[in-house]
Computed example of a mutant assay.
Amino acid sequence: MKALTHTDFHFDGQTATYIGKVRDVYTIDNKYLAMVVSDRISAFDVVLPKGIPYKGQVLNQIASKFLDATSDICPNWKIASPDPMATVGHRCEPFAVEMIVRGYLTGSSWREYKNGAREICGVAIPDGMREHERFAEPIITPTTKAELGLHDENISREQILEQGYVSAEDYAILEKYSMELFKRGSEMADERGLILVDTKYEFGKKDGVIYLIDEIHTPDSSRYFYKEGYEERFANGEPQRQLSKEFVREWLMEHNFQGGKDDVMPEISDEFVARVSERYIELYENITGEKFIKVQSDNIAERIEANISNMLKRLV
């Protein structure tokens, strides 16, 4: 199985390139973005040394589906997805914060809570909660957007406004959009027998209008539980069946890696790569309710470059 871990495209009108942990973003005429979702995989803000075949296709196609399904809630950056691993859309000026919406106490929030925290990003968390317990209402726990190789940092609403990351007027819109998007995502998950546990949203601004940008409701940006068996597992204190890349984080933690400066990346075997690829395809089919169709190419990069180039010609 082939995996795309690197791109180096040169499109007509290209003015900038950004290589992220997973996505490679090409700016065209300072007006459009061509976002390629690679097969790279990251955990604890570290890119693993091997790519995961079909992961980029899974993430791009899930995000594309949910961008279309939520476009009535707020404008989003997508114009079209000319390739299974790429989306072309509007270039927006991104806000310097990410909006994390949590419906349940799990993952990093549970780890903080277990260590004694009773406030996360300025949001009070009551005593006596248990792992995977549902909040009375979803909460927003923003983070700053870190540079490549650095960790995102928790930040409160008050700090965001005090430090001028976002104006009070814009932040109110970000909160409104985030809650409405989470509600829609939760309803769509429920139809699939899933629970949308938590997710992140990123926003930007263009011509004075706030747009939803980047990915949405993918297993890299979101955590899902299976609805069936949730209550019983919670009552018994058992781990929940999850649809997210948390299983990758857990595997790394089992091998004593959490992204610390002295942590040593464990060997990534071909068997583990194949298993992760299968899990991503499972995620796609469960989240979308559609059969995943593997798009194979002798040269993935050439296919993507040609498809994006043809799309850009139609935009100019």
Rank of each mutant, 00 (worst) to 15 (best):
N154V: 01
Q240T: 00
M188H: 08
A168N: 09
A168S: 11
E267C: 09
G237Q: 08
L150T: 08
M253K: 12
E191V: 12
D198S: 09
Q258R: 12
S186N: 11
E278H: 15
Y177R: 12
S186E: 07
E175Q: 11
S222T: 00
D170P: 15
E191K: 12
D190V: 08
I195N: 03
S221V: 07
S222E: 00
E187N: 08
Q258S: 13
G289N: 11
E246W: 09
S269Y: 00
G289H: 08
E290P: 02
L283D: 03
K291E: 04
S167H: 03
F234R: 06
L148R: 15
G289F: 11
F247M: 15
A172I: 01
L243G: 11
R249K: 02
T288Q: 05
R279W: 00
Q242I: 00
G185T: 06
E175V: 15
V197N: 05
E158W: 00
D220E: 03
E153N: 09
E232R: 13
D263L: 02
V197P: 00
H151L: 01
V248A: 13
L194D: 01
G208L: 07
Y224R: 03
D263C: 06
E202A: 05
G260R: 00
G289R: 04
P239T: 00
R241A: 05
L174W: 03
G204V: 08
M188E: 13
E191C: 06
Q240K: 07
I293K: 06
V276S: 04
L243W: 05
L196W: 14
R223M: 02
L174I: 03
E285Y: 13
K291A: 01
H217M: 12
V264S: 04
T199N: 10
H151N: 13
E169T: 12
E246G: 07
I173Y: 11
S244N: 04
V276N: 03
Y165E: 14
E250M: 00
G164F: 06
L161Y: 08
E202I: 07
Y230T: 10
P239Q: 03
S244I: 02
F272K: 10
S178Q: 07
R279E: 14
N256V: 01
K205E: 05
M179F: 15
I210H: 12
K206E: 10
G164P: 15
F182Y: 15
A235G: 04
Y230D: 09
I195S: 08
L194P: 00
L283W: 02
E246L: 06
R192T: 02
E231R: 01
N256G: 07
D214G: 01
A274N: 15
Y177C: 06
F257L: 13
G164R: 08
E238Q: 04
G149A: 14
H151E: 07
G204Q: 11
Y211A: 02
E278R: 15
K200F: 04
E158M: 03
E238M: 02
E250H: 04
H151D: 05
E162L: 06
F234A: 03
E267Y: 11
I216N: 09
E238C: 02
S186H: 09
F203P: 14
S244A: 04
R241Q: 06
S178N: 07
E215Q: 05
D170S: 13
P239L: 05
E282K: 13
E169S: 13
F272A: 14
N236Y: 01
F247T: 10
E202K: 05
D152F: 03
I268R: 02
V197S: 09
E267W: 10
Y230G: 05
